[in-house]
Structures are given as structure tokens and as C-alpha cells.
Design a protein around this nucleic acid. Sequence first.
DNA 1: TTTCCAATATCGGATATACGATATATGCTG
DNA 2: CAGCATATATCGTATATCCGATATTGGAAA
Lengths: 99, 99
Amino acid sequence: MAACEMKGFLSFLVLWLVSREKMSGAEIALELKKRKGSKPSPGTIYPVLKYLKDKGLVQIDSNKRYSLTKKGGKELDAHIKTFFETFCDLDEMKECCRK
Amino acid sequence: MAACEMKGFLSFLVLWLVSREKMSGAEIALELKKRKGSKPSPGTIYPVLKYLKDKGLVQIDSNKRYSLTKKGGKELDAHIKTFFETFCDLDEMKECCRK
DNA sequence: TTTCCAATATCGGATATACGATATATGCTG
DNA sequence: CAGCATATATCGTATATCCGATATTGGAAA
């Protein structure tokens, strides 16, 4: 238990990425690889996209590119707010990182 | 599945809090309540502390106050690094939050 | 010392999250 | 069109994460 793998932010990250520009599933996976180092498997990324779509947070166009819906925008805003409240001392954390 | 509850950063946060000052389990729980809004239950916080202690990342003094070990410091540094790489555009995110 | 309350600890189980394997669709190239 | 590679999708499962309920401990106050 409690292996400190820092799971749990995939949906949040996907919402964030898609809010910035339309992206396909493959593009999202690539961007996540850039950031986290490991590329999420298809079995990881597509279920998340389906979940977000079913929940009405993202929409998919004819080219299979995902973008944020209005509802998704509100949800993302709320998540970002929580995120920055939870990590309210990011500056200090970043400072610590440079040592 | 994939309910976007943003779980998974509890161990990380605990390491971070404890790295700044010695804290008891109760104090840690209180600080988490301040940040996240909800107070983690005893069944949440103490197993995490035990796990971190068993793994040699934190130590506990005679007053049951936790602090970071040397090993824990290295682990925390690595996590912080990963964290900032994953969320490499925090400025933009924060900006978005203010709108 | 005894009582009481809060902090600490532990256990079982519920849910979230992610992955591997596999199947299907899509589009490109010959 | 046929063949192939890649993207997409789905299913079952493994693990991480967390919580509720329930002990247990430890210290303060009567």
C-alpha cells in the first residue's frame, strides 16, 4: 500500500492539455511521455478519454481530436483552484529543488 | 473508473510538509485539511506515516513528531523534480486560474 | 490512582487509477 | 483493391490510494 507513485493526476492533466489545443489521443500520449518520462499505454489513455467524453467534459471532432467543452472548462477551473490551494507553496518547493 | 478525484499525492505532500518542520500525525492531518478542504481520516494518515517510516523516509522522535531522513530527502527531491517536469507550465495554469 | 479524551495505530474493504493484451478501425502506399 | 502500419478502443486485472470502524496508547485532570 501507499507506494508513493503519485498516480491520480492523469485526468486532470488530460483536461489541461486539451484545454490548450485540440489533440488526438496519440498526441496526448506523446506529450505525457515528454513530461513524465513514460508513455501511457493505450489501455490507460483511451479509457480516460472515453470517461471524460461520457461525462461531457471533452468533445471529439471528426478528426478524432479532443477539445474541452464548456462544462469541462468549469471542471478544469475548479481542479486548478484546488490544485493551487493544495500546493500553496510551490515557490518554496521549486527553490528547494534548485539546491 | 477514472473519476478524476486527483488522489495520489498524499505521500508526496506528507514528505514535503515534514521536510519543513517536525510535525505530529494530527498536525499533518490539520495542515492537509487547510489545503485540501477535507481532513484525512486516521485510517488514511497513519498508514501513510507507517509506510514512510518502514521505508526509511521519515523518522519519529520521542514526542511522536515526524521528520525527514537523509534518504527521505533524496526521495523528496526526486519527486519534486518529477512534479515540476510533469507540471511544466504552472505559470500558464495559474494565469488561467485568475480569469 | 483512576477517569477521560484525544492522538495514534491497525485492519478490512471500497474505489480510483493504470496497465497488458487484444480487437477494431483508419488511413496510407504499393 | 490489397496489405500494412498506426491509431483507437475495449476488456479484464493488478495495484495504489483512501476511508470507516475499531482497538490501543498516552497524557492531563480530578
